Simulated scan of single mutants.
Amino acid sequence: MMDQAKLQEVFSDKAYVESIAKLSAEDAAKSLREKGVDVTADDLMQVRDFLMKHKEEAQNGELSEDSLAEVAGGSAGAVACLAIASFLLTCSGTIMLLAW
């Protein structure tokens, strides 16, 4: 389970988030693990796929109940993806710049 306080700390640094958005999924995951966020490249790819699937909602910074239901009660990886996605949504402009 991801520590919400750790996610908040890491993803509140907009410069850092923008820097990892330019990395490969593998390098971004490694960097996040070095910051104490237990995530894999596959988790990050799930984040990207989820955000791209819900691109319009993501650009508005909100996800519908239907979108959230896709991951509700899902695997730990899916829940981790939702947590990461929610923090990425707070970094305006970052989502469309994801290299992974």
Rank of each mutant, 00 (worst) to 15 (best):
D49A: 12
A76D: 07
E56R: 05
S75T: 14
S67Y: 05
L51R: 01
Q4V: 12
C91T: 14
A58V: 09
W100D: 01
G93M: 07
A69V: 09
A85S: 05
S92L: 10
Q59M: 11
A99D: 13
D38T: 10
Y16S: 00
A72V: 09
S86N: 06
V71D: 00
D13K: 10
K22A: 15
G36E: 03
D27S: 13
D13W: 15
A15W: 07
F87D: 01
D66N: 08
A72K: 06
S67Q: 05
A76K: 09
A58N: 04
V39R: 00
L82I: 03
T94R: 00
Y16N: 00
A83Q: 04
A69C: 04
R48T: 10
Q46L: 08
K6W: 12
D42P: 03
T94S: 09
T40A: 01
M1W: 08
L98V: 13
C91I: 14
K22E: 15
H54M: 00
E56T: 14
K30N: 05
A21D: 03
A28V: 11
A72W: 13
V17H: 07
E65G: 09
A76R: 07
L98A: 05
K55R: 12
F50N: 01
Q8M: 10
Y16C: 03
L63H: 02
K35C: 01
A28S: 11
L32Q: 04
E62G: 03
T40E: 05
Q4G: 04
S86L: 09
K53M: 11
D43T: 07
D49Q: 11
A41T: 13
K14D: 06
F50G: 01
A80F: 03
V47K: 00
I20T: 06
Q8R: 12
Y16W: 15
K14H: 12
G74T: 05
Y16G: 00
Q46C: 06
I95W: 04
K55H: 13
S92M: 08
V10M: 03
D38W: 07
A41W: 14
T90R: 14
F87G: 00
A29V: 13
K35T: 06
A15I: 10
W100K: 04
I84V: 14
E62W: 06
S86D: 02
I84P: 00
E62K: 11
A21Y: 12
A28I: 05
S31H: 12
F50C: 01
L7F: 09
K14C: 02
G93A: 04
G36Q: 07
L63F: 12
S67A: 14
K35I: 10
L89C: 04
M52K: 15
W100C: 06
M52R: 15
A29S: 13
S31I: 08
I20V: 15
V10Q: 03
S64F: 14
A28Q: 07
V71L: 08
D38P: 04
E62N: 09
A72I: 07
D49M: 14
D42N: 09
F11M: 05
F87N: 08
E18Y: 15
